[in-house]
């Protein structure tokens, strides 16, 4: 089992690529989940001198998802004892309409500024109140974290791919003799390279299983989940169906493409 060492190095390399990709995906997913949370919490208050429908708001800016009128009844109720019903009725008519506007995604500061301007252009809108504290520090840190992690995972994936290529060259060297002998007895290309493909496919499957196990342990362990829950996020770091299948596809394509390059290279040598 001299080839066991080569097996392991290809599996480790494939595993590293898959792991890097999965980290990239998981971080992306975390940020997305956090943005959704922020978006749901985030709203803008609009004061208008006439009633505006949801569609009217939506027409003003595509980022607007929905609007909710803020009930003024409660305030008026409180004034009931202190004012004459007639005056109250008058006040009700002259009182501006208040709306809470929700957005379809978490806005950047520029988007908020633009939105504010667009809303104010409308003659019936008197005032727009966005939050000054739009981007909290956690969010900014997360964005920074995302950039760092993604650059790292791309770098890791690139370096490992090079390692795999080098590994495959070694394979080619090891298998070249057998493949050329088989050719001398009339074996077609697919038969000569069947062993290579079998190794590549088996290694890809093993690497995928290892990644699944790694993330399973990660999730079972729970500390990552706990950490995320403290910032109000619950996500699947590893979705066993989707991420598992994607990992398998990536592993298989990487190893099969590399094997193909070896086989084609070997065939030309003849």
């Amino acid at each position: 089992m001299k080839s066991l060492k080569n097996h392991i190095s290809l599996i480790v390399a494939l595993f590293t690529v898959l792991f890097a990709v999965q980290i990239y995906v998981a971080v992306d997913r975390t940020i997305d989940a956090y943005e959704t949370r922020l978006k749901n919490d985030y709203s803008i208050i609009v004061v208008a001198n006439k009633a505006l429908t949801v569609d009217e708001f939506k027409a003003m800016d595509s980022i607007i998802d929905r609007s909710e009128p803020i009930a003024t009844d409660q305030v008026l109720q409180r004034l009931k004892g202190e004012m004459a019903p007639k005056n109250l009725e008058l006040l009700k008519l002259t009182l501006p309409k208040f709306y809470r506007i929700y957005l379809s995604r978490f806005p950047t500061p520029e988007e908020i500024a633009k939105l504010q301007k667009r809303l104010e252009k409308n003659s019936s809108i008197q005032r727009v109140e966005g939050y000054a504290q739009t981007h909290d520090t956690v969010y900014k840190l997360m964005l920074l974290f995302k950039d760092v992690v993604q650059i790292f995972s791309i770098a890791i994936a690139a370096v490992t791919s090079l390692l795999i290529l080098k590994e495959m060259r070694l394979w080619q060297f090891q298998h070249a003799e057998r493949m050329s002998i088989m050719a001398l007895f009339g074996a077609p290309v697919w038969l000569r390279s069947a062993v290579l493909f079998r190794l590549a496919i088996v290694d890809a499957i093993i690497a995928t299983i290892l990644v699944c196990i790694a993330f399973f342990i990660f999730e079972e362990n729970g500390w990552m989940d706990m950490l995320l829950r403290t910032v109000g996020i619950t996500i699947d770091l590893f979705d066993f169906l989707h991420d598992g299948i994607r990992s398998l596809i990536i592993a298989l394509s990487v190893s099969i493409i590399l094997t193909l390059t070896i086989v084609i290279g070997n065939d030309e040598e003849e």
Partner: peptide, 8 residues
């Protein structure tokens, strides 16, 4: 050639 070699 492959075919021939299978008979040699």
């Amino acid at each position: 050639l492959n075919f021939l070699r299978r008979h040699i």
